[in-house]
Structure formats: C-alpha cells, structure tokens
Design a protein around this nucleic acid. Sequence first.
DNA 1: AAACCAAACAACCGCCCGCAC
DNA 2: TGTGCGGGCGGTTGTTTGGTT
Length: 252
Amino acid sequence: MGRAPCCDKAKVKRGPWSPEEDTTLKSYVQRYGTGGNWIALPHKAGLRRCGKSCRLRWLNYLRPDIRHGGFTEEEDNIILTLYSTIGSRWSVIASHMPGRTDNDVKNYWNTKLKKKLFAGKTSLSSTRATTTTTTNCHISTDPSMHFTTTTSSAFVTEANTIYYDPTDMNYQQNFVPEFPGPDPIQFPLPRLMEFGENGRGPVHSNLSSRVSSSQELLSVSPSLSLENMSTYASWSGNGGGEDDGFFYGIGF
DNA sequence: AAACCAAACAACCGCCCGCAC
DNA sequence: TGTGCGGGCGGTTGTTTGGTT
C-alpha cells in the first residue's frame, strides 16, 4: 500500500539550497517559529520546498547553535562510546553533544571515525551475521531489567551481568569498563539485516566509503578506546536475539 | 592542465511512531 | 478502535571538493 508522499515532488524544488532560500527559511522560522507544522511552513514562508526538506535544512544547517566540522577527540570518544553501547542511534548520540546534529555525527562516523577505527586494525572480524555467543557478562537495555544505583545506572549482578540505562550519562561517566582479558565484547547491530546474497554483502577488507553501516560487521575491543576498539568483538545476531533491545555481552 | 579518484558533506527516501480525529 | 497525518529518524544517494597522477 504505502502512504501518500508528504508533498508533490513535481511542484517542489529539490537539490541544494540557495542562499536566498536559506535566508527566507531562517528569517521565517526565527520570526514566526515552525508553528509545529513543517508541512505547511514552506507555503507560508513562500518557499517551493518540501516541508521535510525545510525541517532538515533548519535542523542540520540553519539553526543558530549549529557547529560544523572540527570534531574534538573528546567528541570522538563520546561517539565511539555511545555507538558501542547503543548502536547507530545518531539522534541520541548527537543529543549528548551540543551543537551537533544527528546528520553531522552520522556523516562523521561514516566518513572519518569508522575509518579511523579500522585504521591499523590487526584482526578485523567481518563476517556474516551470526547469533550472539554466550559470555559471562551482559549489558542489557531491557527496561524490565533496569536498575539505578546511586552513582550510575549500570550495575553488576552476582552473575557478573551489567544492566544499564543507555540514556544515562552517568553511566558513561562512571562506568568505564576495563576488561583485561581478550574476550570479545559483542553487540548486535540493531535491526541488522541479512545480506550478502545480492552482491553487496560485507567484504573483509577495502571498506569503501559507501559500505553501509547496516551491512557492516564491526569489530571492537572492550576497552572502548579508539586504539583498542579495533581489536575484538563483532556485531552479531539479527537484532532480535534477545528482544527488541540491544544485547551486549562483555567477557570478563 | 586535465583527468581521475576518494573523501566529505548535503540532501533525499522511506519507514516507524505518536497523536489527533 | 481505526485511520491518516506529520514529525523524527536512520540509511542511502547525489554533489562538491581536494588530492594525486
């Protein structure tokens, strides 16, 4: 079935935004706000653009507090840490970095950070998706398992199982996992899809800039540092192994 | 100087979800 | 309760830019 498109593609302008359009949109939003209706906004503002396009342009480029480029090492670490815990939820990751947009973070990851991560890799494990293997320690986002301690949302049970709230930055600050052993940290990519039969499946090397993150199987080490992330672990599972939440196994 | 290639960035596509009716 | 609409999001593609040959 599918749903009707949000706008008539034949009647709206597409492609790069002109400075005039930027000015129009920016001045309109700053003067009148979005009115909670992006679909109607371009018409009111006198723009021949799709409402979604206007929203994207404003959020990713025209907002006054936007920062572009120049990611700091601290931001690198934030991205890496969050990516390793919650996956490609760019909006969540971006929300932890003022002035950054999900699109920016996503692009930065796809073009730079990912390569940085893989640079110097010695044992990139890039295989077809497999189910998660048993480990001694689990990190779960399953809300039913959620606990909060006084210092962090992460905790360790008697069975060496860590549960945490991925949205809790205290976790990020207070729980700095250091795993002495070589056992892999494993976390399935959310909504990881089956692939490989269409000729566009994962390859073992030569990650091109167009390799989809959803197709890629990543190896990272438990220590979550940039240098060490590249050593162990892999995306695994099909996104539905444990439940809809993510399932992270960290070996002690 | 031109051609080619890869990286970086901007923008679009389509799906999902929440909400109003 | 069902349906449609709009917002939000992640994935993908198109375009531009810079470097190399």
